Simulated assay, not measured.
Amino acid sequence: EEFFKAYISQWNLIETNRKVGVMYPNDADGNAIRAHLAPLLAKQGFTIVDPGAYETGTTDYSSQIALFKQEGVEIFNSFPIPPDFAAFWRQAAQQG
């Protein structure tokens, strides 16, 4: 709930289309966030774009990035381990 409060208080300060691309890993943290945070965000009017749980150590995020682009995602939320985030962010930048 504290994550939810923090995100809502920040995201409501900026104009967006309220589409949130989420990337939650297939682990205890990711599954808990998917089960609890995502529904709270949806109840506040945010559209959740969830490509599904990914495995830690994934090296190719092309399908997730393509979905986020296709859906017009303007907000990104994730709970990855640092190397996974670095790989995703690098690939997202490369793919525009």
Rank of each mutant, 00 (worst) to 15 (best):
N26Q: 06
N17Y: 09
Q94P: 01
P51H: 06
F3W: 04
S62R: 11
W11V: 11
E74T: 12
G21Y: 13
A35D: 12
F88E: 06
E15D: 12
D60E: 03
L67Q: 15
E74S: 15
P82R: 07
L67F: 05
Q10H: 05
S78A: 09
Y24D: 04
G96C: 08
A92D: 07
D60N: 14
G96W: 06
E71N: 01
A92Q: 07
N17L: 11
Q64H: 10
D84Q: 14
V20G: 01
F46R: 00
I75L: 13
I65T: 02
Y61P: 07
K43P: 00
V22F: 09
K5R: 10
P80C: 05
F76M: 05
P80S: 10
A6E: 14
L41M: 15
G52Y: 14
Q44G: 02
Q10F: 02
A86G: 05
A35E: 15
I14M: 15
E2N: 13
T58N: 08
V73W: 03
F68G: 00
A35M: 13
K69E: 06
Q44L: 05
I33C: 01
P82L: 10
A86P: 05
D60V: 06
L13S: 02
E71M: 04
A86V: 13
L13T: 05
R18N: 10
A53C: 04
I65K: 10
P83N: 08
Q91Y: 10
V73N: 02
L41F: 08
F79L: 07
E1C: 04
I48R: 05
F4T: 00
D84C: 03
F3T: 10
D29H: 06
G72C: 09
I33M: 07
T59I: 13
D29A: 08
D60P: 12
N31K: 15
G72E: 11
R34L: 02
R18G: 00
E74G: 13
T16F: 02
S9N: 14
T56Q: 11
E2V: 15
L13Q: 15
P82A: 12
A66S: 09
G52V: 02
D29N: 03
F46W: 09
I48W: 08
D50S: 07
A42H: 06
L41I: 01
T56R: 14
L67D: 06
F88Y: 15
Y61Q: 05
L13W: 04
N17E: 08
G72M: 10
W89F: 14
I14A: 01
I8H: 07
Q10M: 11
I8T: 05
